[in-house]
Design a protein around this nucleic acid. Structure first.
Lengths: 133, 133
DNA sequence: CCTTGACCTTCCAGTAACTGGAACCATTAG
DNA sequence: CTAATGGTTCCAGTTACTGGAAGGTCAAGG
């Protein structure tokens, strides 16, 4: 398979696949003409990576997960640890975003949004500053 | 004020303040010795930026908001439009994260996490691949 | 045989918003 | 005089790609 084939089958852009080779996530063979020659195993790994990335795992997490995936004597605890850490990060991000969202929604609601200059959003952003200079 | 003073008062690292000058968000004067000389107006802007960034606005949004803030004849609708677009982006991000979280939480729960190799998390990630080669 | 088009290659640069570190200058206290 | 503190610039690295240029390869059509 050429890169276009695995790109289509894995759902990953060809550019991304080349990048994954660059950083050592995959090591496809090469044809005589220099083209990358992917086998089923490579495609499998790429699909694995696409799914893991879609779940928000970092590249380094993906590297670790892929290593565990290929290690038949792995402990599932190692996998679970990575996933739980990631889950905690997702929760933290969601909490951050919800806090932002709450404040921002409040401000947006308070802003009449017409052609007059007074605006609670800007007032809030500019608040908390000493004008005592 | 030197950069250390405004860093402390605005809550922004000095590095970040220099960066904000680099990209033209602020233009502090300079003392004879080359040190940046911040006035109250600069500090005010930095505080504004710190708050806007904390609400997740991009630097370019911050640049636009700051321009509106300084424009006495602005229309609040312009501000509101930026804020609403950002709010929509936050909502989209939260939705993405919640979807990830749901899938991941499910998998984590299913994984016993001991020293045995079988692991539903890896099974899921490796799923959807033809082994027909 | 030649051309056209699709596909492949490498390499360089840019994205967002900083952050770390090196090498060096200024100011002040002891 | 020296040491500590805090300022300066500039370069590189971070994350995970993405775009684009310049050029090689291959199959089909005339």
């Amino acid at each position: 398979m050429n890169i276009g084939d695995v790109a289509e089958r894995s759902g990953l852009p060809a550019k991304t696949i080349r990048y994954y080779e660059d950083i050592g996530l995959i090591r496809p063979k090469r044809d005589a003409n220099g083209y990358r020659a992917f086998d089923e195993r490579d495609l499998h790994k790429l699909t694995f990576l696409a799914r893991a990335r879609a779940l928000g795992f970092s590249i380094e997490d993906c590297r670790a997960l892929l290593a565990l995936y290929e290690d038949d004597s792995r402990a599932s605890a190692d996998v679970k640890r990575i996933a739980e850490r990631h889950l905690a990060q997702i929760d933290a991000k969601i909490a951050d975003l919800r806090a932002m969202r709450a404040t921002l929604a409040h401000l947006v609601e308070a802003c009449h949004g017409d052609d007059r200059p007074d605006c609670p959003i800007l007032e809030d952003l500019g608040a908390g500053v000493r004008r005592d200079a």
